[in-house]
């Protein structure tokens, strides 16, 4: 066997060699070749020295100090209304519960056999359905906008390994995730398979985006774009959005006639 290249030796030294990069021949070669064995040992020494970077031990009050600073960030403001209100867990939970109740009422009304109702009750149901269709349609429009931006994103100029800033999409995905989960769960419970399926396909992508770093290498962006294209996700969201908007318009017309 000829001498292995540097990558093979580094992977071998770190124990990261796989079937593709290692072989019994490689191990045998390192065993008998003094130069390669010395190289592996030198690599292990380099890794040992570099990983021995000493970390200063924080003072005993570190945990308490950290909590005080973190707690300040978690405190709701004493007055006024800011974006933090929207993102506090309690508020999201409360809004979510309200949304579920309203959506459940809407979908239950849609799928249940309707008894004779008074004109007032009918008008109320129609208004409620229309409001919900607007909300779901808006959610789908926003999701579609994120998908479009990701699909059309291009790497930043400069640098050998180009990266893409997806911080805006990341933030928007984070905002949409909770609502997406609520709409999907409600659709599942009420048997609206089309809505549940599309939102179910959208959800892992929103989770991935929300948890990504704000800049990703081009290779990762391309992999993401391929996944969106392979699943036809953009088209599915677009079709569903269009369908929801049609239903919304039909409700509006029906409301105007009654």
């Amino acid at each position: 066997m000829t001498h292995p290249d540097e990558q093979q030796l580094i992977e071998y030294a770190a124990g990261d060699a796989t079937r593709a990069t290692s072989s019994p021949e490689l191990a045998q070669h390192v065993g008998v070749c003094a130069a390669c064995r010395e190289s592996v040992e030198a690599l292990r020494r380099v890794v040992a020295v570099a990983s021995a970077l000493e970390v200063p031990e924080p003072d005993p009050g570190y945990e308490g100090r950290t909590w005080r600073r973190v707690a300040d960030e978690l405190e709701p403001p004493s007055a006024g209304f800011t974006w933090r209100d929207w993102f506090s867990i309690r508020r999201v939970a409360a809004l979510g519960a309200m949304a579920v109740l309203v959506i459940a009422a809407f979908l239950a009304g849609r799928y249940s056999p309707r008894p004779e109702t008074t004109s007032t009750a009918l008008a109320t149901t129609q208004v409620r359905e229309r409001i919900l269709l607007v909300a779901v349609g808006d959610h789908l429009d926003r999701a579609q906008s994120i998908l479009l931006e990701i699909s059309n994103a291009e790497p930043l100029a400069g640098g050998a390994e180009k990266t893409v800033d997806i911080s805006r999409e990341q933030k928007r995905a984070e905002e949409l995730l909770g609502a997406n989960r609520l709409y999907r769960q409600t659709a599942q419970r009420t048997g609206d398979a089309t809505v549940a399926d599309v939102l179910g396909e959208l959800e892992p992508l929103l989770v991935e985006l929300a948890n990504s770093p704000s800049e990703v290498p081009t290779s990762e962006l391309e992999a993401l774009q391929k996944r969106i294209a392979a699943r036809g996700l953009l088209l599915k969201v677009r079709v569903l959005s269009s369908n929801v908007h049609e239903r919304e318009q039909a409700r509006t017309k029906a409301g105007n006639k009654s």
């Binding site: 580094i10 992977e11 990261d16 690599l43 890794v47 290779s219 990762e220």
Partner: peptide, 18 residues
């Protein structure tokens, strides 16, 4: 959030530079 190849490559490049 990298693939396996890119991850191994990052570790490799790091050790190479070090």
């Amino acid at each position: 959030d990298l693939n396996i190849g890119a991850t191994k490559n990052s570790v490799f490049r790091a050790v190479q530079k070090l």
